[in-house]
């Protein structure tokens, strides 16, 4: 898995970013690169700011300090058309799926295509069917989000994020609330899409099994240290790290 040939080009660059709410600093001075084609995992315990870091990278929550660059565009310094172009080149799978409840799964996937491409309705339906096929949901295409299971919702969320074939996908807690088998299926899908489509994945998760199964590289955030306490290949971190919190995390011990 980790043998995937990863070119050294950084598609996302975070430099010295800090985040927090009011006087409560979540983390500060976080610096890392995400390289093209890799599955990059942001991990850490509950409340360490993983999801905030993700929202900050996609431009939803402003950083207190620092700079986020995605595909050579400064996320927090672009507006208007340039920002729209950037948004078309990233896809996000939200923690609860965030699918539109009044549309079928197929229509959910068609929506970004209708907004941002000149494809005809028939062509859109065919393309959306292909995206649902990529995540293994062909047969559920005409169902509403309220009629499918949690695992299927997340897959549909990935299919919608894939609609415009973005080079970068952000996944927020893909395995949260799923049973181990469904979760493993989702992990296999992420690996498969990363290998066949060459998409770069940024995954926020705290599921140990998932991290070891999909992660090429990871950073670990910590609430106490208010920053990054480990960076690298998760399998090597598990074996070699001497940092007590990192060891506790990978060995599932109470700290």
């Amino acid at each position: 898995m980790s043998e995937t040939t990863v070119s050294a080009e950084a598609v996302i660059r975070c430099e010295g970013i800090a985040a927090g709410f009011g006087s409560n600093i979540l983390f500060r001075d976080v610096t890392f690169d995400v390289k093209r084609g890799e599955v990059f995992v942001i991990l850490g315990g509950s409340g360490c700011g993983k999801s905030t870091l993700l929202k900050l990278m996609i431009g939803l929550v402003p950083p207190l300090a620092g700079r986020v660059t995605i595909l050579d565009t400064d996320v927090w310094a672009t507006e208007g058309k340039a920002r729209l172009e950037l948004l078309k080149r990233i896809g996000v799978m939200w923690q609860q799926g965030a699918l539109f409840g009044s549309l079928t799964l197929l229509e959910n996937v068609e929506m970004p295509l209708a907004e941002h491409t000149s494809l005809s309705a028939a062509a859109r339906a065919e393309v959306a069917r292909a995206k649902l096929g990529l995540v293994g949901l062909s047969e559920a295409a005409s169902r509403l989000p309220s009629e499918v299971s949690g695992g299927m919702l997340k897959r549909a969320g990935v299919a919608r994020a894939l609609a415009l074939d973005p080079p970068i996908l952000f996944l927020d807690e893909p395995s949260a609330g799923l049973d181990p088998i469904t979760s493993a299926g989702l992990d296999a899908m992420i690996r498969d899409l990363s290998r066949t489509l060459g998409t770069t994945f940024v995954v926020v998760t705290h599921e140990l099994a998932s991290i070891l199964a999909i992660g090429d590289r990871c950073i670990m955030l910590d609430k106490e240290a208010k920053g990054v306490i480990a960076e690298g290949d998760p399998r090597r971190l598990r074996e070699e790290s001497t940092q007590p919190t990192v060891r506790a995390f990978f060995r599932r011990e109470a700290a």
């Binding site: 069917r129 292909a130 995206k131 047969e139 295409a141 066949t196 489509l197």
Partner: peptide, 19 residues
């Protein structure tokens, strides 16, 4: 070829049965 094969497999999946 990887993308082509992957999408071929995706499109080969059965269509949902019409209600």
């Amino acid at each position: 070829t990887d993308v082509l094969d992957r999408v071929r497999a995706a499109l080969a999946a059965p269509r949902p049965k019409p209600e």
